[in-house]
């Protein structure tokens, strides 16, 4: 590790954090992997960016990143938003690692609120930025009590929330941060990912790490972990479905963002995962709105 420290740019340690801090975080990560879904406290450091910008995810990434890693950073599925660009730049500067926008090429993917559409494979690590790790927080405000509830698997309250949804809306209205049960034991908040992504967590060959900087918690899903979305027998979990395919690449069964195209109410639905969309278009897949742009691009 002293070698990597020596390679740091601008006088910073490799990947910004000092070795002792990284060791502390790695110990927390190992414990989290050993107890899937359990929130492990860690001594989160102040990072050179405000809370809410992914300080938890960045510390996890910094602790696991090696010089040979290839890093991808997405924000709501996109590689090109401010948050994604600045985090990518941060690690390029402090760790001098290779960066990519291609899901398949990345060894470490830091994400804010999406799981890539391209299935992850063995050896890949997905790092989630988590604002509020405690799934019981809004049902039971006392931290002392929620810890006991986790310890005793006392999760009736979680279903009360879902019951309230059905009683009020006729269905479970929660569309993101949809609670899951991990390996039949811990109830976990998957961070504010859309519930569309919940099934991707189940039995994923990739390692999934969750970091909450302000709340100072790390939790994890080791590869091939059972992850089940909470539901009722007569109101089973249903991932979000979209009626139309992506307007750009024609993909179906992917998560779509609504894009407003003009001031007259015009809009279209396109892939939230920009890499997935671009890859498909490069492979020759076209959606309804693609033709014009394609002509322009090839012109």
């Amino acid at each position: 590790m002293t070698a990597s420290t020596a390679t740091a740019a601008g006088g910073y340690a490799f990947a910004y954090l000092d070795d002792q801090t990284k060791r502390m975080i790695r110990r927390a990560i190992l414990k989290a992997i050993a107890i899937p879904g359990h929130q492990v406290p860690f001594a989160a450091r102040d990072m050179p960016m405000p809370y809410g910008w992914g300080t938890g995810g960045i510390q996890v990434t910094a602790a696991i990143l090696g010089p040979a890693d290839v890093l991808k950073v997405i924000d709501q599925g996109a590689d090109d938003t401010t948050n994604a660009v600045s985090i990518r730049k941060f690690f390029k500067t402090t760790a001098n690692v290779a960066v990519t926008t291609r899901t398949t090429e990345a060894t470490v993917i830091q994400t804010r609120h999406r799981i890539p559409e391209t299935p992850l494979g063995p050896g890949q690590i997905l790092v989630y930025q988590v604002p509020i790790p405690e799934p019981l927080r809004f049902l039971e405000p006392r931290e002392t009590e929620t810890r006991v509830m986790h310890a005793l698997a006392d999760y009736g309250l979680m279903h009360v929330k879902l019951y309230e949804d059905i009683a009020t809306h006729g269905r479970i209205a929660k569309t993101y941060a949809y609670p899951v049960k991990v390996e039949g034991r811990y109830v976990m908040d998957p961070s504010p990912t859309p519930k569309f992504d919940n099934p991707k967590m189940h039995l994923s060959p990739a390692l999934q790490l969750f970091g909450a900087g302000r709340e100072k918690r790390i939790y994890a899903l080791p590869p091939f972990t059972h992850v089940v979305s909470l539901d009722f027998e007569d109101h089973p979990f249903e991932p979000t479905r979209f009626d139309a395919p992506c307007a750009l690449c024609g993909a179906t069964g992917v998560y779509l963002d609504e894009v407003v195209t003009d001031d007259a109410g015009g809009r279209m639905f396109v892939c939230s995962d920009t890499d997935h969309c671009e890859t498909r278009r490069a492979e020759g897949h076209h959606g309804t709105e693609w033709a014009g742009e394609a002509t322009e691009a090839t012109a």
Partner: peptide
Amino acid sequence: MAVGERHY
């Protein structure tokens, strides 16, 4: 629900 009833 606390004792495992899962049928709304």
